[in-house]
Nucleic acid binder design. Structure first.
Length: 820
RNA sequence: GCGGGGAUGCCGGAGUGGUCAAACGGGCUGGAUUUAGGCUCCAGUGUGCUUAGUGCCUUCCUAGGUUCGAAUCCUAGUCCCCGCACCA
C-alpha cells in the first residue's frame, strides 16, 4: 500500500517552497486566465462538492500551464455575509474572528487538494484594503447616476427589531423567534440601476461561449417583452400600466395592484381599510416562492380606474399574485383571456367579457367559457376594432391610445434594479452621510475606506445603528453634525469585480492596474455552479459594462468562456447537508484513498457538467487503477514499443488532449485507462513518461512522485505537454488488431457452444479470410491465444480444407470459422 | 406560479440521425493464480429464436409522429431534479 498522505505532503510542500505555480508576469508566453467562483468561507469548511469544483479548474489550469500558456490561476474569499453575523449572534463570536478562522481552514483544505493556485494573489472581500474599493465604486456609480434611493419592502421582525433576510424567514416566522410573525415594512434603500444596461446585457449574451442553458436562463431573467403602456385614470390622476396584450383592452373587467405596492395606500377607500389590512396580514414574506405558494387572493380597494378607450369604470383590487416591481405594479385584468385573471374573477364573482375569438370561428361573445382563451384570434365585442386580428388590433389600439396621449408602444424587462442595501453589520459600509442641511452627501474619496467598527452589539437591530462612534460624523460639505448611512452593501457587490482585483491584489492607489487589466482581462475560463446563472453572472456583467463606460477598462464582458459543473450529491443521491449527515469531507477521503484517487473518481463518474453522487465502490475502482499504475512502475523494465502501441499512444495523446480542453474529463479518464492497458504489456521509458504527463493534471501528487522515481529532477507539473505524432497513428493497423481480437472472441465463443450443446471438445480450428486480410491473422499467434491449433486459409485458396463450406460466410473483417 | 434541466442495462453513467446491445466504472457469476482471505489476471453478464455459427428479433420513461433509417428530431403525457432577486 502506498502512503498517500506522505506523498501528498511532500509535493505540496515542494510546490509551496519553490513557488512552482507563482505567476511570472514578465513571461512572454500567451496568457490565459482561469478562475473558479470564489467561495464563501463557511465555518463548516469545504466538502467534497467544493473539491469537485476546484479540481475541475485545477486540471484545466495545469493542462494550460503544461501546454505553454502563462496561466493566471488565483483564489480568494467572499468573506462578508450573513452566516458570519448569525454565528456572532448565536455563538457570541465576532464575525471577523469567525471569518478569519474559516478562511484559514479553507486555505489549509484547498492546499490539501493539491490545487495549483498562485497563493500570493489571495484576496478577502472583508479586508478593508478590498472593501475600500467597493466604496469607491459605489461612489462612482452614484456619480454616474447608476445608484439611487427608493422605497422597497423588507421582512421585519419586531422582536429582533431588525430586517430579516429571506433565509431567516421560516414559514412566515422569524428564525430566532419562531412565535413571531414576520411583517412587511417599506424602507428607503439603495439601488443600482442594472436596468440601464438591460438591452446590452441581453444582446451580448449571444456572443458568449457559455453553456446554452445558462444563456437561456439569463435571457429569460432579463425577460424582454414588447407591449404597451396604457394610462388609466384613477382618482383623478394617471396610472401607467404595462401589458403585452393591448388587443384585449376591451375585455378589462378589473385591475389588480400588487399587495406590496408602495402606493397601495393611496388607493384604499375608508370603508375598505379594515378589509385590506386584514388581507395584507396574510402575506408574511417577500420571498418569491412564498408569494407564489399562496392561493391567488385579493381584496377590493374601493377605488376605480377609467378605461382609456371605453371610459368604463373598473374596480381596482389588491392581489398577492402581482409583482410590485415589474411594469408598474398594477395589471389590467382580462379574465376571458388570461388564466390567472380568470380564476380570480371566478373566485370573487367579477365580470368576464370575451373580446377575442378563435381565428375564423365566429363564436358568440356571451358564450360561457370554462377556461381562459389565451391565444391570439379575431377581436369581438371591441367596438370599432371588432373583426381585426389580435396582431392588427395591437397596432390599431396603440395608435388610438397614442392620439389620445393615453398610451404608447413600449418594451419592458423583467430584470429589476439591484437592491444593494443590507441592514446588517458584516458587509461594506455604504459611504454616504446624511446631513440635515446638505442632504445626502457622498463620503470624500480621500476618507475611504469607511471602516467597519469592531466593537458593536449583536442581536437587536442593525449593530451599526447602535454604534454612536460610527453613526455620528461631520458633514463633508458643511462640517456640521451628520449621520452615517448604516446600511451595508450586498455581498454580490463584492463579487461583481473581484476577478479584476486579482490582477493587482495589493495595489493601494487604485482598484486595479489598467495595464494589467489590458493584458489579463477578461477571464478566459470561468468555472462555477449554475446557481449563479442569473444573479452573480448578471451583476458581474453589469459591473464590467459600467466600468467600461467609466473608462476603467475596455472589455465588454468579464467571462469569455464559462463552464458549469454539476452538483455532487451524497451517496443517497441527496444534496449534501449537515442535517442529512451525508457530507463527505476531503480529509477523510484523502486519508483513506489519497486525494489523487478522489480527484480521479470525481471526474470519471460522469461528465463534469452533470450532477453526480458520491460512491464508495466507485472510489475503490479509481484506487485500483492508481495502485496498478504504481505497481507497474515499481517493477518497470524497458521494452521496445510495437507499431501498434505507438499508434494507440499517439491517437490517445491527441484525443485525450481534446477531451481535457473541452472538459470531457470523464471520457479523458477512460482514455487514460485505455493507454495504461496498451503500455502494460511492456513499453519504453519515453512512452511511460508520456503517460505520467497525461496523468499529472488529474493526479498531480502521484505523478510527481513517479516522475521523480523515473530519475527526473524537475517538476512534472512544469513539463511540456506531449504532442502527438500524427504520422504514427495507423488506423488500419488498429482496425486489423481489433478484427483479430474479435475473431479470437468468436472462436472462443464457438468452442464454448460446442462444449455446452454438443458435449464435444474442439481439437482443430480452421478460419477463412479475405486474401488481403491474410496478414492480419497469424496462425501461430491465433493458436497461442486460443490454446489449440488454428489454420488460416484465404477464401480463394483452392486447396483449403472446408468440409462445411464455412468460407461462404466470410465478410470483410469477419472470417469464416470451422471447428473440428 | 415563473424559468432551466433530466429519464439509457443489476447500479453509476457514455452516447444527440446510420459505424449501437450500447464506451468506461461498479456489482454479480465462472475460471486462472494464490490458497486463510484480499489483491491481481481472464471470460461472461437484456429477451426470445436458432444452424456449433461470429446470425436474427426485441429494447434506451409512456403514447403518437417525422425519416429510407430514431436512444438521438417533433408533439402530447408521466415522473424526478435545480433556480427564483435580503443564503452565497
Amino acid at each position: 500500500m502506498i502512503n498517500f498522505s506522505t506523498i501528498e505532503r511532500k509535493w505540496q510542500n515542494r510546490w509551496e517552497k519553490k513557488e512552482t505555480f507563482k505567476l511570472d508576469e514578465s513571461s512572454r508566453k500567451n496568457k490565459t486566465y482561469v478562475l473558479e467562483m470564489f467561495p464563501y468561507p463557511s465555518g463548516s469548511g469545504l466538502h467534497m462538492g467544493h473539491a469537485l469544483n476546484y479540481t475541475i479548474g485545477d486540471i484545466y489550469a495545469r493542462l494550460k500551464r503544461m501546454q505553454g500558456f502563462n496561466v493566471l490561476y488565483p483564489m480568494g474569499y467572499d468573506s462578508f455575509g450573513l452566516p458570519a453575523e448569525n454565528a456572532a449572534i448565536q455563538a457570541k463570536e465576532h464575525p471577523a474572528k469567525y471569518t478569519e478562522k474559516s478562511v484559514k481552514n479553507f486555505i489549509k483544505q484547498q492546499k490539501g487538494l493539491g490545487l495549483s493556485y498562485d497563493w500570493s494573489r489571495m484576496i478577502k472581500t472583508s479586508d478593508p484594503k478590498y472593501y475600500k474599493w467597493n466604496q469607491y465604486f459605489f461612489l462612482k456609480l452614484l456619480k454616474k447616476g447608476l445608484a439611487y434611493r427608493k422605497k422597497s419592502n423588507v421582512n421585519w421582525c419586531s422582536k429582533c427589531n431588525t430586517v430579516l433576510a429571506n433565509e431567516q424567514v421560516h414559514l412566515g416566522m422569524c428564525w430566532r423567534h419562531t412565535e413571531t410573525e414576520v411583517e412587511i415594512k417599506n424602507l428607503e434603500q439603495w439601488f443600482i440601476k442594472t436596468t440601464a444596461y438591460a438591452e446590452e446585457l441581453l444582446k451580448d449574451i449571444d456572443g458568449l461561449e457559455w453553456p446554452q442553458r445558462i444563456k437561456t436562463m439569463q435571457k429569460n431573467w432579463i425577460g424582454k417583452s414588447q407591449g404597451a403602456e396604457i394610462i388609466f385614470e384613477i382618482n383623478g390622476s394617471p396610472w401607467k400600466i404595462f401589458t403585452t396584450r393591448p388587443d384585449t383592452l376591451f375585455g378589462v373587467t378589473f385591475m389588480v395592484v400588487s399587495s406590496q405596492h408602495s402606493k397601495l395606500n393611496e388607493l384604499i377607500s375608508d370603508e375598505q381599510k379594515s378589509e385590506v389590512k386584514k388581507f395584507l396580514k396574510k402575506i408574511k414574506s417577500t420571498k418569491q416562492e412564498d408569494l407564489d405558494k399562496l392561493e391567488k387572493e385579493g381584496v377590493f380597494t374601493g377605488s376605480y380606474a377609467k378605461n382609456p378607450l371605453t371610459g368604463e369604470k373598473i374596480p381596482i383590487w389588491a392581489g398577492n399574485f402581482v409583482l410590485a416591481d415589474y411594469g408598474s405594479g398594477m395589471v389590467m385584468a382580462v379574465p376571458a383571456h388570461d388564466q390567472r385573471d380568470f380564476e380570480f374573477a371566478k373566485k370573487y364573482k367579477l365580470g368576464i367579457k370575451r373580446v377575442i375569438g378563435e381565428h375564423g370561428k365566429a363564436r358568440k361573445a356571451n358564450e360561457k367559457i370554462s377556461e381562459a382563451f389565451i391565444g391570439y384570434g379575431d377581436l369581438i365585442n371591441s367596438e370599432g376594432f371588432t373583426g381585426l386580428s389580435s396582431e392588427e388590433a395591437k397596432e390599431h389600439i396603440i395608435n388610438a391610445l397614442e392620439t389620445k396621449k393615453l398610451g404608447k408602444k413600449t418594451i419592458n424587462y423583467k430584470l429589476r434594479d439591484w437592491l444593494v442595501s443590507r441592514q446588517r453589520y458584516w458587509g461594506t459600509p455604504i459611504p454616504i452621510i446624511y446631513c440635515k442641511d446638505c442632504g445626502i452627501v457622498p463620503t470624500k474619496e480621500i476618507d475611504l475606506p469607511v471602516l467597519l467598527p469592531e466593537k458593536v452589539k449583536f442581536g437587536k437591530g442593525n449593530p451599526l445603528e447602535t454604534n454612536d462612534q460610527f453613526l455620528n460624523t461631520k458633514c463633508p460639505d458643511c462640517g456640521n453634525n451628520a449621520k452615517r448611512e448604516t446600511d451595508t452593501l450586498d455581498t454580490f457587490f463584492d463579487s461583481s469585480w473581484y476577478f479584476l482585483r486579482y490582477l493587482s491584489p495589493s495595489n493601494d492607489k487604485e482598484p486595479f492596474n489598467k495595464k494589467s487589466v489590458k493584458k489579463w482581462f477578461p477571464v478566459d475560463q470561468y468555472i462555477g455552479g449554475a446557481e449563479h446563472a442569473c444573479m452573480h453572472l448578471i451583476y458581474s456583467r453589469f459591473f464590467t459594462k459600467a466600468l467600461r463606460d467609466m473608462n476603467y477598462l475596455e472589455a465588454n464582458e468579464p467571462f469569455r468562456k464559462l463552464f458549469n459543473q454539476g452538483m455532487l450529491r451524497g451517496k443517497d443521491g441527496d444534496k449534501m447537508s449537515k442535517s442529512k449527515g451525508n457530507v463527505i469531507l476531503p480529509e477523510d477521503v484523502s486519508k483513506k484513498y489519497g486525494i489523487d484517487t478522489a480527484r480521479l473518481f470525481l471526474i470519471s463518474v460522469a461528465s463534469p457538467d452533470k450532477d453526480i453522487s458520491w460512491s464508495e465502490e466507485g472510489v475503490e475502482g479509481s484506487l485500483r487503477f492508481i495502485l496498478n499504475v504504481y505497481s507497474f512502475l515499481k517493477s518497470f523494465k524497458e521494452k521496445k514499443v510495437t507499431k501498434l502501441q505507438e499508434s494507440k499512444l499517439n491517437r490517445i495523446i491527441k484525443e485525450y488532449s481534446e477531451d481535457l480542453d473541452n472538459f470531457r474529463y470523464n471520457s479523458a479518464s477512460i482514455k487514460l485507462r485505455e493507454l495504461f492497458e496498451v503500455l502494460k504489456s511492456g513499453c519504453d521509458k519515453k512512452s511511460l513518461e508520456i503517460f505520467l504527463k497525461l496523468l499529472s493534471p488529474i493526479c498531480p501528487h502521484i505523478s510527481e512522485e513517479l516522475w521523480e522515481k523515473l530519475g527526473n529532477k524537475n517538476f512534472i507539473s512544469l513539463e511540456r505537454w506531449p504532442v502527438p505524432n500524427l504520422k504514427k497513428i495507423n488506423e488500419k493497423l488498429e482496425l486489423a488488431s481489433k478484427d483479430f481480437e474479435k475473431t479470437v472472441g468468436d472462436i472462443k465463443y464457438i468452442l464454448k457452444m460446442i462444449k455446452e450443446r454438443k458435449k464435444k471438445v474442439g481439437k482443430k480450428v480452421f478460419i477463412y479470410v479475405i486474401p488481403n486480410e491474410l496478414k492480419n491473422y497469424d496462425s501461430k499467434k491465433l493458436s497461442l491465444e486460443i490454446g489449440i491449433d488454428v489454420n488460416v486459409f484465404a477464401v480463394n485458396d483452392k486447396e483449403k480444407y472446408d468440409p462445411q463450406e464455412k468460407s461462404k460466410n466470410v465478410k470483410p473483417g469477419r472470417p469464416g470459422i470451422y471447428v473440428e
